[in-house]
Design a protein around this nucleic acid. Structure first.
Lengths: 154, 154
DNA sequence: CTTGACCTTGCCATGATGGGAAGCCTTATC
DNA sequence: GATAAGGCTTCCCATCATGGCAAGGTCAAG
């Protein structure tokens, strides 16, 4: 099976299959004499494992761990479960952060009459209304939230 | 005021201030004879606007629009409100996607006894349990979800 | 044998951010 | 005035996972 078929069978783009190989997530595929990568059913299964893990938001780095556990017949399911719980925790943090944004935005949007007039509480808030004194343009900066994690594309 | 002070006053790192200038989000700052960038209260106010917008998850591109509206005294508040609603909608989509991941992961984790034994429904699912027939390793790939948006770091 | 579909590698881009190096400037201290 | 410390400048690189494009080799069907 060539890379295109492995891609179709696994749902992982050919580009990403090569990337996973390059970064060591998957072992280097076999090659034909002309240099084409070849894949078997096992390879496709691994790719589907990766694909499904990405769909659940796992980073490639975490998938390395998941794959290692998958291959390890003497694994302890507790270790897998822990990875899952970590993943859930990370997702929930980001969900909470985004929900906070939604709430703030909703309140602001609610306060904005949204007509042809220029008055807008949204812009007023962004412009520093949270510092209404306005006499002190050098107020201390607000502390930054975290939320820098890159969520896998799906 | 030098860039370091503007950074402290706005909560935007010096690095990002230069980046925003380079990409045209903010106008080029004035310079001293020796080449140092100089900032005034207005500049800090703009930076704080940006900072707060980022905190609400707006992309730099969207902030360009927000800033334009902010500067435009003949704006219509409806336009601002629409941007806010778009932002809310985008956030809610990603929240829903992540919640779906959490739910799937929770169910799997719940089914995993999490002890010293290797049996693990989580790995079984990732390994393709969703395709139980297993006789057809070349099943059609699942459709991909979207969720590629990069959420600003906060 | 041609054509079209597929494969290869390599480079570039994304988005927002941090890190670091090399070198100049400013300020404070002695 | 000299020196040290710290701030500023630019430039390049890395992240993370992904897509795009281009130039060229390969394969299979007609």
């Amino acid at each position: 099976m060539n890379i295109g078929d492995a891609s179709k069978a696994s749902g992982v783009s050919a580009k990403m299959i090569r990337y996973y190989e390059e970064t060591g997530l998957i072992p280097a595929a076999g090659r034909t004499t002309s240099g084409y990568r070849t894949y078997g059913d096992t390879d496709v299964q691994i790719l589907r494992f990766i694909r499904r893990s990405r769909d659940l938001g796992f980073s490639v780095e975490k998938i390395t761990e998941l794959l290692a556990l998958w291959r390890d017949r003497s694994r302890q399911s507790a270790d897998v479960k822990e990875l899952a719980h970590e993943q859930i925790a990370g997702l929930e943090i980001r969900i909470a952060e985004m929900q906070a944004m939604v709430q703030t935005l909703s309140k602001l949007a609610e306060a904005c009459c949204g007509d042809h007039r220029p008055e807008c509480p949204i812009l007023e808030d962004l412009g520093g209304a949270s510092d209404p004194g306005a006499g002190a343009p050098f107020a201390a900066p607000r502390p930054r939230a975290g939320l820098k994690g890159h969520l896998p594309r799906a």
